[in-house]
Simulated scan of single mutants.
Amino acid sequence: MIDWKLAQSTANRFIKPGPELDSAEVAEVVDELRAAARRSVAPVESYTGLVADAASPVLVVDRPRWVEANLSTFSRIMEPVVTSLTAEREPSPAARAVSAKASGVELGALMAFLSGKVLGQFDPFHVDGGVGGRLLLVAPNIVHVERELGADPSDFRQWVCLHEETHRAQFTGVPWMRGHLQGLLDEFVDATDTSEGAVSALVTEALPELVRIIRGESDKSLSDLFQNERQSRIVDQMTGLMSLLEGHADVVMDAAGPDLIASVASIRRKFDKRRSQGTGLAKILRRLLGLEAKMRQYRDGAVFVRKVTDRVGADGFAAVWSEPAHLPTKAEIDDPARWIARVHG
């Protein structure tokens, strides 16, 4: 269904060049990011109580390598989707080849756009030699943003590493987290209705909402438009989970930062202002791709973490990591008192 090699080559063709750095500057950035990642382990563990798996690697990558890593993960995640769709109806070899190339070009162009936006990422689904997960730090993007903000480079790089190390601790320090997320993805695939009638109905209902998104009258993304009712319920669970993880990482990077980062308050202020900006086509693309919703996850999740911690303390908040049933729902992210009442009575 997707020509993965064509997706990579398309992305490579459209990826924008990063900031200009000579070989010595590249080596300096890579070395400093690796050192900052190592320095992040102890403060994150101390603040969160989560012990990351030391065997889970930290990789400093450029934009093409970030795309390559994500396409590799996507291809594994997509396997059950492909199996489900082809079980319903097997297209002719010619039709399948055309569809695969078209999807490869579309996916490659999308990944090229996203490759310039991501500072770091923990990939929980990568497995190598029995070790689950890997942390990716996208060096050119980090350098680009630190220059754009006028931030101290060492401070900004350390700040980003604190956030990403928190994600590594969440997924490798909470034994059931990776399996729980995988289970939600499996449920989402199982809920996909690939019948022609269902697909036609979704497209018909989605078109008017698509116009509203482009006009700025709707906060939905493209993925929201093509979900049935059962999938929407699963996505609500995912939204609650991802808001928790992103908000928690934002809180940790600010709370654990002052001992390591003198300018942490200034970086946060400038970074939040940058997050809220965006005009014209860029803003429309962010909305369509769900990046605007991603920004809300950071904000709402951080508010949830702070309010719960204020009410029941750090130990009370830590109940979120004890079992999947204690994860907040999307509604509880918006109303932390509901989570406190449910979990702590």
Rank of each mutant, 00 (worst) to 15 (best):
R38M: 13
P208S: 10
V29L: 14
V82E: 14
G173D: 08
G257R: 05
A24L: 12
V29I: 13
K16Y: 00
R157W: 09
Q277W: 08
A265F: 14
V41S: 02
G179N: 11
R134E: 14
P93W: 07
P91I: 04
S276K: 11
P324H: 07
E292M: 11
F113G: 02
A341V: 01
S221G: 12
D3P: 04
F226N: 08
A206N: 05
P19C: 04
T194D: 11
V189K: 10
T172D: 15
D155L: 12
D224G: 01
S56Y: 08
P57H: 07
K307S: 14
D193Y: 12
K5E: 15
D190I: 00
D155F: 06
V343M: 05
K270L: 14
R157N: 02
A341H: 11
A293G: 13
R157G: 01
V26G: 01
Q277N: 09
L260H: 02
E209T: 08
Y47M: 11
P324G: 09
A52S: 14
T204C: 06
S72D: 12
R89Q: 14
A109M: 13
G313H: 08
V160N: 02
S75V: 03
D31N: 08
A206E: 11
E209W: 04
I15A: 04
G313L: 12
A27E: 15
G179T: 09
G49L: 14
E217L: 13
E332V: 04
L137W: 09
L136H: 06
K307I: 00
A35D: 10
L291T: 02
G240R: 02
S218K: 04
Q170M: 07
W66H: 02
A265R: 11
V30Q: 11
T10Y: 06
A35F: 07
L114Q: 14
V308E: 14
D31M: 10
A112Q: 02
E229T: 06
R178Y: 03
S23C: 01
H248V: 02
D22R: 03
M295W: 09
R274Q: 13
V81F: 15
K307N: 13
T172I: 09
S218E: 02
F171G: 01
S46V: 07
A302L: 07
G197W: 10
G247H: 02
A169T: 01
G257E: 01
F317P: 00
W176Q: 04
V251L: 15
I284P: 01
A169K: 06
V81H: 07
G49H: 03
A256I: 08
H326T: 03
D155P: 05
D219M: 06
R157M: 15
G290Y: 04
R342P: 03
R63S: 05
V26C: 05
F14Y: 15
R13E: 15
G49T: 00
F226V: 13
G49Y: 04
